[in-house]
Design a protein around this nucleic acid. Sequence first.
DNA 1: GCGTGTAGTCGAAGCGCTTCAACAATATAG
DNA 2: CTATATTGTTGAAGCGCTTCGACTACACGC
Lengths: 346, 346
Amino acid sequence: MPTMQDVARHAGVALSTVSYAINGTRPISEETRRRIFAAMDELGYRPNALARGLASKRSRIIALLFPAVKRGMGLTELEFVVSAADAARENGYHLVLWSTEIRDAEELQQLMRQGLVDGVVVMEIHDQDERIDLLRTTDFPFTMIGRCADNAGLNFIDIDFGQTMAIVIAHLVGLGHTHIGFLNHAVDEFEAGYGPAVRAQNRFLETVAANGLHGTMRYCEASPQAGYSAVNELRAADPDLTAVIAMNDRAVPGILRAIADQGLSIPDDFSVVAIVSSARFAEMMTPTITTAEAPAYELGRLGTEMLIRQLEGGNNDISGKLIPCKLVIRESSGESPARRSELSTA
Amino acid sequence: MPTMQDVARHAGVALSTVSYAINGTRPISEETRRRIFAAMDELGYRPNALARGLASKRSRIIALLFPAVKRGMGLTELEFVVSAADAARENGYHLVLWSTEIRDAEELQQLMRQGLVDGVVVMEIHDQDERIDLLRTTDFPFTMIGRCADNAGLNFIDIDFGQTMAIVIAHLVGLGHTHIGFLNHAVDEFEAGYGPAVRAQNRFLETVAANGLHGTMRYCEASPQAGYSAVNELRAADPDLTAVIAMNDRAVPGILRAIADQGLSIPDDFSVVAIVSSARFAEMMTPTITTAEAPAYELGRLGTEMLIRQLEGGNNDISGKLIPCKLVIRESSGESPARRSELSTA
DNA sequence: GCGTGTAGTCGAAGCGCTTCAACAATATAG
DNA sequence: CTATATTGTTGAAGCGCTTCGACTACACGC
């Protein structure tokens, strides 16, 4: 491996001149720059990342903090990872994965102290999150995909649950549905203050009330079996229910089965909309599912870019950005039975 | 951030002694070691990863090379990533993601020259893979999840397609099926020499022949639509077909729909088995799918551990390890129609 | 003419660690 | 009792880079 010293000798200049040429830290004459770059690719030189990081105190490495989630990771999480890695690469950064066991702040602190990374992107945020508290008090650069209860002075990007819920409910209301159910994540996720579980529920209750609709909700574990019983419970609680919004992909197959087992058909008798979901998932179901798709790619990418901008200094305007899910209408949502019979009588 | 020098002063020893104590590189008296460790956690000291890497020429960082695949990433790929990250962590390594655009060797070489990582784990290997050729000729440490055509002297871990196919076909034969179809990945994957596409196909043809069965195969893009037409083509090519093995999760919903559209029922009239699949996926389908599940967690973990062992020197025995998928029988496979009518006549 | 910038370059001092050579002190062998 | 290890410790020399201070050469305004 050639070093910067080799390049300098080859180009007949001082080592520091090479450094300035590479980083643009100081003005270099056109002629000198040319010689240096020629020497560089003649030798196949690439600056050593470790040495550069040590000397400059900026490793150009960031970490993606993605804790093990009971719920299990899905396609959305995968997209976070991929898009974060892409965004990092495009900006000349490396992305390391700090995974699973780093749930407690203690372990995170050990990693921070190693001085390997310049900042972290945190996923799967809870309302009260000790990782965020730690990062905050130690002034370690970070951004969040999600947010906690108090986000004053923090950079984050999150799903706009209010907007998402408004769009989805508007869609259903437009189809004549007035009795709508909501299937949330598991109750312990909610109680642990898991952001989406808390916010989606609140927005559901608000929106339903604001529109004078009948709303019913249930928590639901991430499994078809749980979805099966949860939707039956919903229908028992409100016999006039004609539509359900599910923020729980893994429960959806159970919902479909339960409806079919009642001899009802989707979407004629009952509509199903999955929120914070993905096209990949929606198209695997029969019927294909109308979804509000999580902007996973944007979230991962923007969260990362936000962090990098923060690290590159200057642009220090703190911001919280919300992106709504995008509604894609497929086969699982249709006009309410009441509306349909009105039309056929008319 | 305290440095090693601070620890040394605090413990009243030389800087080098602290280093020896931490790394166990030289014998240190019990008393001295105690003082050093006390000083360390009094100061909250953690060795600086960059400095350590620069001085020792071993960064304790490895990369997971996961290129963008046309087919799109699924749960299996996600598990590789997660399990690789876990395995790295447990062994005191960091895992960086080198993703998407690094398909050509050129870009990989740039990354290697940066000296950031000690070695790489390569995923999504093709029979002729220029990334592997590059790593090989430059003597850069690496292991493969998958393998290429010539693996002499290489460390790899892969799915045992022969064994997997044998298990799956034995299952179907045991149920009385004699006309079996195979749905592969897309034809361009096969032609590009994508390992699983090539090997699963060969093992299918061999096993079918060895058992005197009628085997038919088709390539299939990764979509329900493609699955729909592919299974119809298979049935047209062999009207006696009663079972299909699919190595293409995203096509499976299409298969189910096509069979249902013919007025046939699964598993009474037709059996479906998905291979190199996952429980998560299988349980989302109705009926739930009998699968040969990819040992994704083991592959990611072992691929990583293999690399680390190789880096830690000593244990340099080159090995290629194969793990078969695990058959999990669910609702989509059952006795062949012929066998069923035999039984009812008897 | 003089001060005052600015472009362009250089040498040297570190960044925080590992590791080498050296040495004292004690143990072991013959 | 000397020769030879072994244990335990030290200081200093780097690893490959960034960055500071200094210096030269030339432009500018007045």
